[in-house]
Every structure is written in structure tokens, then in C-alpha cells.
Design a protein around this nucleic acid. Sequence first.
DNA 1: ACCGTAGGTGTCAGATCGACAATCAGGGAT
DNA 2: ATCCCTGATTGTCGATCTGACACCTACGGT
Lengths: 238, 238
Amino acid sequence: MSPAHRSRLLTHITADLVVLTIRSGQLHVLVVERDNEPFAGQLALPGGFLRGDETLDRTAARELREETGMDPGSLHLEQVGVYSDPDRDPRVRRVITCSYLAIAPNLPVPTAGSDAREARWVTVARLLAPRARLAFDHKRILADAVERAREKLQFSTVATAFCDAEFTIGDLREVYEAVWGVELDRPNFHRKVTDADGFVVSTGRKRTSAGGRPASLYRAGDAETISPPMMRTPRARK
Amino acid sequence: MSPAHRSRLLTHITADLVVLTIRSGQLHVLVVERDNEPFAGQLALPGGFLRGDETLDRTAARELREETGMDPGSLHLEQVGVYSDPDRDPRVRRVITCSYLAIAPNLPVPTAGSDAREARWVTVARLLAPRARLAFDHKRILADAVERAREKLQFSTVATAFCDAEFTIGDLREVYEAVWGVELDRPNFHRKVTDADGFVVSTGRKRTSAGGRPASLYRAGDAETISPPMMRTPRARK
DNA sequence: ACCGTAGGTGTCAGATCGACAATCAGGGAT
DNA sequence: ATCCCTGATTGTCGATCTGACACCTACGGT
């Protein structure tokens, strides 16, 4: 082992959060501005250290509440991957992180969190742009989590996690369009989603928004997977 | 924090391997018999501690070579998940592990590994049976990795990682049948696989084995995903 | 009353699927 | 040499799914 690493046998472990939501048709992620070195002033994903008596899942849930004021019980939260490059954190103690993907509906305004740092929504497109910078290896972590979300939309029903408890098929379609960056055929999407077993359940109600016929309201069904899967058909962006 | 955990702020990190292969139509996993406490004498997944100067991916690759004598460069190796229950390891130092799924063709006899402990293949079915026991939380880790493998067969081309460099469509079909525990329709499987873009590439050669018409040999194609996916059709087991 | 907009249904041709018949090409037995 | 058994591979067909797109519905706004 090289001398540079001899002093780093003690490792700390963190959970970092990639909290995604859709705002006005764009995929957004929650970021905080760092107060301290390293990377002070730069944007980073929210996250924090594992405590001695908790699992990483609990760390992720706790940080979600502490840093963003959101309720971990109410939204989709799943482990994505571990990042363990010895040099990913320049501090003396080596830090390994486990990333979590969280999916939230639009409603909550995160900055309202209690002891939250300056947390805010930024479009994923902006943070993944070639010249964009994030602290540590968070750009990579973000990219991996977004890719995970894109894949999961195809085969699972997580898309409903982006919506409120009651939503229209149009809302759901906007989720797919925002996350995949494609435009989907309305009629076909409607049929596929309503025909799929356990994806959406009709409540009797309707919602009448500005312009257009009132849309039926649905809530998420029991199913976790969709078969056959939703297909990501490449067509020109809106 | 409770006193019981106060002394466990220092954590060690391991990589554990779920090495899968197919032997005579059955899905097998590589296990070792533990020499030391805890769980001495019990079966466990191979794995080992992260070193100060390496990533977890490198730890997994190194342990694969050291404990099983296999060449990590030649087989599929992917991170699956992190297991961080504070009580998952009864030792004083808390141990968090990251599991890796490795997929190997049948050929290598693992016990031939250099400084390998007693390593051997056991059917997954046997280890996942209700009354079966594995050290630590390795039963859960195994179950999760196998489930990951099952899912990946649907949408990706990893099934070829179970085969030798050159293989027949029948070999590939046996992989699906063993991992999914179903019987697939030969003609339809053949068509689907050969029609899928970049899944398999025909070498000119043929292999003539005992009984039956000689089968054309293929090698893995460039594609990593299959679209449309392979469908797991439930039919009676052989 | 008319228009714009978005929700939702109908239709149709082409692709895919699952089932299964039929044909091909070896080895082994007679 | 011939027949039989086994698995590989090709054909066929009806049921289903998909993607494109016409068309009808029901609101708010003007």
C-alpha cells in the first residue's frame, strides 16, 4: 500500500440522495450548496454520514428528512450503487458513498425543510451538460441514478411515484416524456396504461383544468411491474 | 446511540461474490466453507475486505482471483447492493458489505484456485430452500443476486456470459431455462435470438454432439440490451 | 355560438408471439 | 445399409400487440 493511503484505512460511509421530480415538464434534481470545504460553494447532492446504529437505508431516509424536509415514508427510495474510488473525497478520511434514488411528486417545496441548507431544484439537463460541475463525483452519481430511473420506467410502475395521489393519464404521460425526453402518442399511451393490469386504478372523479375536456383521475395500482414493458420509442422531441 | 453500538463507529467494508454458473442444467453458485469464527464450518459466499488503495470493484475482482482462481477479466462482474444492518456481523467491528454478481461459463473448476479455500459449486435451489442456512446474511444476498440475474436475462445479453466463447443456440436456451426454471419453446427461442440485433453472431462453424443434428456455433454480439425483451413465459417445468 | 385544447375511442396495417407441424442431419442400433 | 432417436432449424397460422392517425367529446374562453 502506498504511504498516501496508509493513513486512510479508516473509512467513513455516507448516503447520497438523487431526489428527482418533474416541474413544468422538465426533470429536476434536488441539490444543495456546500457550506464547507472541500468544494465549498459548489453544488452537491444532499447526503450525510452513516451512524453507528442505523442501516444505510435509514441514513438515506433520515437525510432526506433533515436536509430537504420531505417525508421519506411517502416517496419511492431505492439504493442505486456504491462509489468507492479512494480519491473521490480529498479529505484525510476516506469516504465511500452509497447513492439512493428518490422519486417525488412536484408539490413539496423542499427549501421549506426545517434545518435544511440551501436546497433547490435544478434541471437534470443543466447539471449533466458537458461543462457543468458538481462536487466530488456527484455528476457521475447523478447520471447513474437518472439512467436507473429511465430503465425502471420501462418495466416498473415507479412513474406513479412522480405523481400526486390522484393523477390523470396526461400527468403520467408527462412523466414519461420528461424522463425519457421523447414525445409519446397520446391515444396509444392512454390505452396501454389503462389496459395494463394493476398499473392505474380509476377513482370515479375527474379533474377539469384550463382548456380541454376533463380528465379522469386515477391512483397507483398494486402492480410493481408492467408486462409487456412500456417502450421508449424514439421520436423527435416536442 | 445505544452503548451496544458506541464501540462500533469504525466499520470495515467487504465485497462478497455471488458467482453463478450452469452445470448440467442447474444453476449453481460458488460457496466456501468458513475456517474461522464466526460461522466456522458453515457455508458462505466468497469475499474479502476492501484495501486502503482500491475500489470495491477491484476488491471483488481480486477476491475472485484469490479465492476461486478465476480470471476476473474474462467474466461478467457487476455490483448488486449494499448490506448494512448493524448486526449482520456479530464481530466487534461493524462490517458492511457490497455484493457482486459474477457470471461464469461452466469450464473452470474453481477448487483448482491457488490459495483457494475449500470452494465448491452448490445448486442455488438447495441453498435457497427454506431450511437451508448460510453464514451472515448471505442467503439474502444470494437471493437478491439471483433475482438480479433473472431480471437481467430479460433485457440484456448477459446470458452469453454463462456460455463459452463459442456456443450453440441450444446452450443459450439452457441458460435461460436453468436461470428462470422454465421450459422454452425451441423453435421460437431460436428465431428470437438469431433475429435480435447484435445478440449472437454466427461463426461459420458447427458443433456435432451426441445425438441430433449438428448445431451452428455463435459468439456474443455487440449489443448489451435486447429489444423487445426476452419474455419469461410460465410453462410447466421439465 | 364558435374556437382552441386536451381527453378518449375507433380503425387498420404491420410486427410479434406462442403453438406446433414439418424438415434436416447427425450418431447408434440392427 | 437402413431405421430410429435426438436435437437443430424452418414454416405456418391465428391471436395479440404496436404505431399511426382519424375522429369524436367536453370543457374554458371569447
